[in-house]
Amino acid sequence: MTGMMIRNEATVASASWFLASARERLTGILDPGSFVEFLPPSERVRSPHLAQFDLPAAFDDGMIVGRGRLDGRDVLVAAQEGQFMGGTFAEVSGGKLLGLIRAAIADPDLPRSILLLLDSGGVRLQEANAGELAVAEVMRAIVEARSAGVAVVALVGGRAGAFGGAGLTAATCSRIAISEQGRLGVTGPEVIETNQGVEEFDSQDKALVWSVTGGRSRRLIGGADAYAEDTMTGFRAAALALLDSPPPFDLLTLQAEQERLAERHALFGACESAVEMWGILGIADPEAVRDMDDAAFVAIAAGVKGMDHDAR
């Protein structure tokens, strides 16, 4: 019995974050039995708008919010289900996330840490205005939470990535963790190809897509603050490491971010490819970044300057 349980726990711990559902990720990252959900599916809070598009609704609208413990620390959590409507921001999903963050601002007795398990293509087009506005409200709430001393950490490694409003939301947080499979950006490759042509961005070229928006490139240029192995333990360790000493939300931080982003533009503005950027960063064999294992990547990344910063 005991042996079997240990094996099950080991299986959960090493399960792929990329392939897991939002609920599996919450179970995998939080201390066993510690998760309490707010507005759980039993309350049947679902989108009233999908029916007119002949689309099925979900009793959590693809957004799970609640609280739990991470290695004994109390945390608030929100997880997007990327397999339901692409994890999109909509009226209900956005309202639930907004409620969680505003609760943390209003009640100092609530945990001073929020984990955002992002897995989202951005705004749900069937509820475009409500979704867009929800992102704006969430971004505003995140900076107010940060000003109130709450650490807000984004975890990016799901199948939908974090694009559109989710990409902006991630960059509004105190810190970002990303895995190799994690993708972070604004406009997805397919949309760029549709609008600008295949010569601008070939969305079928998986290696190209990965090098432009993928986790390793984001980490190397300072677009993410931690690199997580694609497992429950990997993201758990990354989240724990990022929760302490988040950058304050103030003028000095944003002046430093201005400088950081201006410098990135100056350094890489003429680059045609991510491999060129990695070469400028001093990586001896930039072509090899793609195929090396996580341990080798972490070792190489450790020598890159400017990757770790408080300018967010």
Partner: peptide
Amino acid sequence: RMARRDEMLGLNEYLAH
């Protein structure tokens, strides 16, 4: 701006900034 280069440089960070 919908461009590969802007995405490669992390447009999400710039807009959020």
